[in-house]
Design a binder for these strands. Sequence first.
DNA 1: ATGGCTGAGTTGCTCAGA
Length: 291
Amino acid sequence: MQPVRVATWNVNSVKQRVPRLLPWLDERRPDVVCLQETKLADDAFRDLLGQELAKRDYAVAAHGEATWNGVAVLSRVGLDDVLVGLGDDAPGFPGPEARAVSATCGGIRVVSVYVPNGRVPDSEHYRYKLAWLAALREMVAAGPEATLVCGDFNIAPTDDDVFDPDAYVGETHVTPPEREALAELQALGLHDVVRDRWPGERVFTYWDYRAGMFHQDLGMRIDLVLASAPIARRVRAAWVDRQARKGSGPSDHAPVIVDLDEAPDGDIGPVVPPPSRPVRKRSAVKLPQSP
DNA sequence: ATGGCTGAGTTGCTCAGA
């Protein structure tokens, strides 16, 4: 198996993001791409991007809706055994939503996920979020050993993953039950490969469009690449592509890019992460509130 | 003191996002 570059990106409407997505594919040349918030039905997705993606040798598994949600996997290292959703017993709100699609790409089971937002702690949306995460865990637990779960988890795993923990008191994305649900998923043996590579660093993947949050680097790390042990051992690089958040017409999320070495013949053992460095000082800024 | 942005359909507004 050759080296593989995997990326995940919440594009916040693939229709609006075409002028950013195609040049980004050409520049970064990922082999496997997980997309979230495509906000497009499958036939419209094919009409919009089918030719452009085929030109770049990508096979496509799109799972969308007319208006909201929507996920996809693009791959030029194979795209087999496509599965839509989380299985027959997956929770919906109230019905099924297009929030997960899985495919086997280059020998790896890849899952693109858009975890429900949760809106307000202890609301119906919040309980749906927790139930959805439990169903995701069940599906991954039943899957193959070589697995990548990539996407917008709408959870900041720790307080290091938000610009100011005080700004998020009482909000979703940081509550203990959400973090516990994520920890239970990771307890299957999934490694948060960006945090493992950059322990203690200030690393965000989402910045609110409002109030110049990006330019002040006031964000959250909620887009994750979770890798099972045999895949995590192959990680050569793992980083957030902040360039894609700059300029005109960006998504409010940046892509996460992970380079995997070719699969070893034998077990080379775990890669030792570099020593931790202190987190840079955080600014005391009030979180923009919804009207 | 408040809103600050972007995208979607129900368009000149409301809902959703995080």
